[in-house]
């Protein structure tokens, strides 16, 4: 199997002190592991390496891009036209909903002010594209094409058209790694949309179900209930659909029921995703990219002027905008 001429030269030649070199490498690896687990000093190094590997990731995504391109080329004009019609109809429906949403949100916020509750904030979103998936099915993450250059921060939530996908766990110059809600290291605080019951949805490593932890046997949950993110813990924005209850098992004699839910987001199919920006800092970075809806802003500013807003995050001009880029 090996070329003959290199055989003689390499068969007896071996670097010296093999055992020592192995020991060195092992010690160094263990030091790296401990540093990486305990501290965050290695993050810049990871950032540099993964930024420099970006071209390869781009290339490895190429077959998929190519096949998508081919399907597009061979789509007939009729199909495209009918697709366009469907989309126009859908856009009309959605626009009607958002017309009402502006006034409903304004009214809701006025009512919340009467209750001295803090205002509901709407988040800005930026469209991003999936550019890579985890090579390892036990380690569920995806890569998206926005990074430090676009102002992405660790901890931001990522949505698709149907619901919550996951959160950003690592950022390099051009790419970010998003941990999916189905990974078995992930948990998301949720509430049942019907009655507000709070729970925590744990990923179990399977793309098509999550598990609700510590739900009392007598709790009011039903198959088909929608779970939305509760916003507790401050990591995820409130009110986005996360999953739908698919199965409830009661165990007589045990305190908690086993409740499974099916994620609303198409975790393994969506390619166009939304990155949620809720901090003002992030918004400033992105303000040039965003298309603002000023009308809603005006309504809220008026109602805001006399109220007792103390928290910085309730800055009127910053957070009442609904911003959509690229849609």
């Amino acid at each position: 199997m090996f070329a003959k001429e290199s055989l003689i030269n390499t068969i007896f030649v071996q670097g010296p002190y093999l055992g020592y070199r192995l020991a060195m490498a092992l010690i160094f690896s263990v030091i790296l592991i401990v540093l990486d687990v305990r501290f965050s000093q290695l993050d810049p190094a990871r950032n540099v390496i993964s930024s420099s590997l970006t071209p390869f990731q781009w290339l490895s995504d190429f077959p998929q891009k190519l096949s998508n391109g081919f399907t597009f080329i061979f789509t007939s004009r009729d199909e495209l036209e009918s697709e366009l019609d469907v989309m126009r109809d859908r856009m009309l429906v959605l626009e009607r909903q958002s017309q009402k949403l502006a006034s409903v949100t304004a009214e809701l916020n006025r009512l919340r002010e009467l209750l001295s509750a803090s205002r509901l904030l709407d988040e800005g979103v930026v469209v991003t594209e999936l550019v890579g998936a985890s090579p390892d099915p036990n380690n569920q993450f995806i890569l998206i094409d926005k990074g430090l250059n676009d102002g992405v921060l660790v901890g931001q939530a990522v949505l698709d058209a149907n619901g919550l996908m996951g959160q950003v766990i690592e950022v390099n110059e051009f790419r970010s790694r998003v941990l999916l809600i189905s990974d078995n290291r992930h948990a998301v605080p949720v509430q049942v949309n019907r009655n507000g019951m709070r729970a925590i949805a744990y990923g179990v490593g399977s793309l098509d179900h999550l598990e609700l932890g510590n739900v009392p046997d007598t709790a009011d949950v039903q198959v088909g209930d929608l779970l939305v993110s509760s916003g507790l813990g401050g990591r995820f924005p409130q009110g986005y659909p996360v999953a739908r209850i698919s199965q409830i098992e009661h165990h007589p004699g045990q305190a908690f029921a086993t409740v499974n839910a099916k994620p609303e987001a198409l975790l393994n199919r969506s390619r166009l995703l939304l990155l949620v920006f809720k901090e003002q800092v992030a918004r400033e970075v992105l303000s040039s990219d965003l298309v603002d809806q000023e009308s809603q802003n005006g309504v809220l500013d008026a109602s805001m002027s006399e109220s007792l807003m103390s928290s910085e995050s309730l800055d009127a001009n910053a957070d009442s905008q609904r911003s959509v880029e690229g849609l």
């Binding site: 790296l32 592991i33 590997l53």
Partner: peptide, 21 residues
Amino acid sequence: GIVMDVLTGSYFGVHSLALCI
């Protein structure tokens, strides 16, 4: 091994330790 660690998003040193052995 370090490259594999970055690609798979695992802790630095995990794959390099295994690959060295």
